[in-house]
Deep mutational scan, measured.
Amino acid sequence: SKWSPSQVVDWMKGLDDCLQQYIKNFEREKISGDQLLRITHQELEDLGVSRIGHQELILEAVD
């Protein structure tokens, strides 16, 4: 995926409302499409996504 960080942010805006709070962290870390495809629970935790349910929603959406 050749998504830029801004495309990742646009994609996140289409996800569940409960995930919108994390967008600024993804933006700050400039998460690209390639990074998103390989993202782990630990990396999500580092991005402030501490709730497992929220991590799962992001990982499922990526899949």
Rank of each mutant, 00 (worst) to 15 (best):
S1T: 09
S1Y: 12
S1I: 15
S1W: 09
S1F: 11
K2T: 15
K2A: 08
K2L: 13
K2Y: 14
K2I: 12
W3C: 03
W3D: 06
W3N: 05
W3L: 08
S4H: 07
S4C: 09
S4E: 06
P5E: 07
P5N: 14
P5G: 07
P5I: 08
P5H: 12
S6F: 08
S6C: 09
S6A: 15
Q7S: 06
Q7C: 05
Q7H: 08
Q7W: 02
V8T: 05
V8E: 03
V8D: 02
V8I: 05
V8G: 01
V9S: 09
V9N: 05
V9D: 04
V9M: 10
V9A: 12
V9Y: 03
V9C: 13
V9K: 07
D10S: 11
D10N: 12
W11N: 04
W11C: 02
W11K: 05
M12G: 03
M12R: 00
K13M: 11
K13H: 11
K13G: 10
K13Q: 09
K13P: 01
K13L: 09
K13I: 06
K13W: 07
G14H: 06
G14A: 06
G14R: 08
G14K: 08
L15G: 04
L15T: 06
L15E: 07
L15H: 02
L15M: 08
L15A: 04
D16M: 04
D16N: 07
D16T: 04
D16V: 04
D17C: 13
D17E: 14
D17M: 08
D17N: 12
C18S: 14
C18M: 06
C18P: 08
C18L: 01
L19T: 05
L19E: 03
L19Q: 04
L19I: 11
L19D: 04
Q20D: 08
Q20R: 09
Q20E: 07
Q21G: 13
Q21T: 11
Q21S: 11
Q21P: 15
Q21L: 08
Q21W: 00
Y22V: 02
Y22K: 05
Y22A: 01
Y22G: 03
Y22N: 03
I23C: 14
I23S: 08
I23Q: 07
I23W: 07
I23N: 06
I23F: 02
I23L: 10
N25P: 08
N25C: 12
N25A: 14
N25M: 14
F26G: 03
F26N: 01
E27S: 08
E27L: 09
E27R: 10
E27A: 12
E27Y: 07
E27H: 07
E27C: 06
E27D: 08
E29T: 10
E29V: 11
E29K: 15
E29Y: 11
E29L: 09
E29S: 13
E29P: 02
E29M: 13
E29N: 10
E29R: 14
K30Q: 13
K30T: 06
K30H: 13
K30N: 12
K30F: 07
I31W: 03
I31T: 03
I31S: 02
S32F: 05
S32W: 07
S32R: 10
S32K: 08
S32Q: 09
G33A: 03
G33H: 04
G33E: 01
G33Q: 05
D34I: 09
D34F: 08
D34K: 13
D34Y: 11
Q35M: 10
Q35H: 12
L36V: 03
L36A: 00
L36M: 07
L36H: 00
L36Y: 00
L36W: 00
L36Q: 01
L37R: 10
L37E: 09
L37C: 11
L37A: 12
L37I: 10
L37H: 10
L37G: 10
L37D: 08
R38M: 08
R38Y: 06
R38W: 05
R38H: 13
I39P: 05
I39N: 04
I39K: 05
T40M: 01
T40P: 02
T40C: 06
H41V: 13
H41E: 12
H41R: 15
H41D: 09
Q42D: 07
Q42H: 09
Q42M: 07
Q42Y: 01
Q42I: 05
Q42N: 09
Q42V: 08
E43L: 06
E43H: 09
E43M: 10
E43Y: 06
E43S: 10
L44G: 02
L44P: 02
L44H: 01
L44Y: 01
L44K: 02
E45T: 13
E45Q: 14
E45I: 12
D46K: 15
D46R: 15
D46T: 13
D46M: 13
D46I: 09
D46E: 14
L47W: 04
G48S: 04
G48M: 01
G48W: 00
G48L: 00
V49R: 00
V49F: 01
V49S: 02
V49A: 02
V49W: 01
S50D: 10
S50P: 07
S50V: 11
R51E: 15
R51L: 14
R51A: 15
R51H: 15
R51K: 15
R51G: 12
I52D: 11
I52Q: 12
I52T: 15
I52G: 12
I52P: 15
G53F: 12
G53T: 15
G53Y: 10
H54A: 03
H54K: 01
H54C: 01
H54E: 06
H54P: 01
H54F: 01
H54N: 04
H54S: 02
Q55F: 00
Q55D: 00
Q55K: 13
Q55I: 08
Q55M: 05
Q55G: 00
E56F: 07
E56P: 03
E56D: 14
E56M: 10
E56V: 10
E56N: 13
E56W: 07
E56Y: 07
L57Q: 09
L57W: 00
L57H: 06
L57P: 02
L57A: 11
I58M: 10
I58K: 03
I58L: 12
I58Y: 00
L59Q: 04
L59C: 05
L59H: 04
L59R: 07
L59T: 04
E60A: 13
E60N: 14
E60C: 09
E60P: 01
E60K: 14
V62W: 01
V62P: 02
V62A: 07
V62T: 05
V62G: 02
V62H: 00
V62S: 03
D63E: 14
D63S: 15
D63A: 14
D63C: 14
D63P: 02
D63W: 07
D63Y: 12
